[in-house]
């Protein structure tokens, strides 16, 4: 009878819990880490890639339009980038939903969708799957890094239950507790993007279980304001650019990273 309250998402257990949602969250805490830091003049996202190997064909990722390998970091709209942790198939469907929602907003109001509204739209959808019978919830947590003219740069997190919250720095996926306590120690309120990039990469290198940090295991993106147009500019780094960045930050190897921490 242990499965009595497990088989349907819509049924509360006697303790008032929804097991399927808790299992979905559990699935995410084994997924690749995604980490975001909100800075004064932008937002930085980094993600750990889980699907790797030398037989994996990455030729499309090298010179793809927006860069990245498209496993975990996606452009959701011209003013929002999303980082996903969890079931990749569910994530693809949610990313598509987010992009459509953003374009629907543009069609209706002739303005880019505000970041919180996009998070809300996604959560309305996610919440629906925890209440209406027979369907499992989305096994995906997302980070939304974006800009809108009203609240400027923002970082949101949403989970499978349909909860969302805004953060200065947060982490989802494997070892998110470790990363979050590291971020709590190191985060400063008036941090700038150039320092946030270092913070994200340092935290990432300590959280990931692999020994070396390189473009084959890492995705990286930054959203800032274009200095001339004052419009948000989302940049998802290409593999070569990630390696160049790690070189610059001196984080190509784990050994060097240990020095950084003591310094």
């Amino acid at each position: 009878m242990a499965r009595r309250y497990d088989s349907r998402t819509t049924i509360f257990s006697p303790e008032g819990r929804l097991y399927q949602i808790e299992y979905a969250m559990e699935a995410i805490s084994h997924a690749g880490t995604v980490l975001g830091v909100l800075a004064k003049d932008g937002v930085v996202l980094a993600a750990e890639k889980k699907v790797t190997g030398k037989l994996l064909d990455l030729s499309a990722a090298k010179d793809g339009g927006y860069g990245g390998s498209g496993e975990k970091i996606y452009l959701l709209n011209s003013n929002v980038i999303g980082g996903v942790a969890g079931l990749t198939a569910d994530a693809n469907s949610l990313v598509n939903y987010a992009r459509t929602a953003a374009q629907r907003h543009l069609l209706m109001y002739n303005e880019d969708i505000p970041v919180e509204l996009l998070a809300q739209r996604m959560c309305d959808m996610k919440q629906g799957y925890t209440q209406f019978g027979g369907l499992r919830p989305f096994g995906v947590s997302l980070l939304y890094a974006g800009y809108d003219p009203h609240y400027h740069f923002q970082l949101y997190h949403s989970d499978p239950s349909g909860n969302y919250s805004g953060w200065k720095a947060t982490c989802i996926g494997a070892n998110n507790g470790t990363a979050q306590s590291l971020l709590k120690q190191e985060y400063k309120d008036d941090i700038e993007v150039k320092d946030a990039i270092g913070l994200v990469l340092r935290t990432m290198s300590k959280t990931m279980d692999s020994t070396t940090l390189g473009s084959e295991k890492l995705e990286f993106a930054v959203i800032t304001l274009d200095p001339t147009t004052k419009e948000p500019k989302a940049k998802i780094y290409k593999p070569a650019e990630i390696d160049a960045l790690l070189q610059k930050e001196g984080l190509m190897k784990k050994e060097e990273d240990a020095e950084m921490a003591t310094a």
């Binding site: 793809g64 339009g65 498209g70 452009l75 709209n77 598509n96 992009r99 459509t100 374009q103 543009l106």
Partner: peptide, 9 residues
Amino acid sequence: NMYTIKEER
């Protein structure tokens, strides 16, 4: 826009 963002070109 949907074409551009999905096809990445």
